[in-house]
Amino acid sequence: MLYADFEKRLDRFMLKVDIETKDGITALFGASGAGKSMSLKCIAGIEKPDKGVIQLNGRVLFDSENRINLSPQKRHIGYLFQDYALFPDMDVEQNIIAGLHHLPKSERKSKAKELIERFKLTGLERSRPSTLSGGEKQRVALARIFASQPEVILLDEPFASLDTLLKYELIPYIKDVISEFGGDTVLVSHDVSEVLSMSDRVIQLINGQARDAISADEFSMIINKLHDKSVLNQGN
């Protein structure tokens, strides 16, 4: 379980995040610029909150009062970047091996092979990221995250750089991958349909302020109401 309660002063507003994940996918939903990516970066240790506490499965990752701030390396958090952040000077296999540095050298190759098969990347071992399609890049990035054996996975707008058709093909695939992972997952998105089809629970982030978590069904009802209203307004 991931628990994060922190504040960070940003240029335009105060980011106030108070979230707790449960099994499955928790979505952090909000307009672009609402502080979603910054929230993930604070959780992963890439950015430092001004104050607050972040815990993962009972481990303290950040605690401003006790001056605890674990490096990203020690947090065991998988982070899927918006444009996947594959290392351009390494091929697919090397990218995946980069996530396997916790294993002894002799075991990395065979583990990488296993992941390459699991993520349907066979035949692409020697390809550079720049030659891959959007879907392939995403699978490499996911394989690399699985390689590092994280305790929680953060997905930052995982479909933003894919075209719409591909996106709907990939949503069930990612859902399967995440359920195989079994740990908690946080999805950041500004897309209602993505949030509805992926997540079990939704936290809205409005101008940097996180609202209480609601179930996906509740979120769906809110969205429908908003939709009805706007349709009625148009009728006037």
Binding site: K41, A44, G45, I46, S71, P72, Q73, R75, H76, I77, G78, Y79, F81, D83, A85, F87, P88, A98, G99, H101, H102, R144, I145, A147, S148, P150
Partner: peptide
Amino acid sequence: FDEDLASAGRTLGLSNSY
């Protein structure tokens, strides 16, 4: 340089010198 690459490396547990 795309700083996300360094951030990705850090979340994967790679050392800063690597």
